[in-house]
Amino acid sequence: MGNAVENEISAINRRQDEVIEEFALFDDWMDKYDHLISLGRELPLIDESLKTDDRIIRGCQSKVWLDAGMEDGKVQFTADSDAIITKGIIATLVRVLNGSTPAGILETDLYFIDRIGLKEHLSPTRSNGLLAMVKQMKIYALAFQAKNDE
């Protein structure tokens, strides 16, 4: 693994640790969800015109639209959801991964999901939605990487 990728991963991990610390401030599940909802408000919103069916992530009870672009070699995600909690989840993922190189996104282990209890506290069908979101973000990264290598 090159130095550049390692730097990307440590930057992502710093953001993961930040999120973990924030959630650790709350003991109560309702407060954790309150926080998740407020993170949803910071989500870089996807352009309304891009909310097309091919940008919907399947496998969630609610709709999630995700788009990605490249700026100076870094991936910039935008997203939205019709459910506020789902929006908080995708916003947290976007916050952690935004501004990284495709390689950084592809190589990163997203340990924060387990550590803030998102996965275990969202039922299997719902966490499928979560995994589908992560997968879609990695697919975008992979596509950008392939383009770079051309």
Partner: peptide, 21 residues
């Protein structure tokens, strides 16, 4: 103005089992 999924998740956290969807 509220998504049924959001309601279901929060009700669950408060100990109530309802179906949404």
């Amino acid at each position: 103005g509220v998504h049924h999924y959001d309601v279901g998740v929060l009700l669950d956290k408060m100990g109530l089992a309802l179906r949404t969807g």
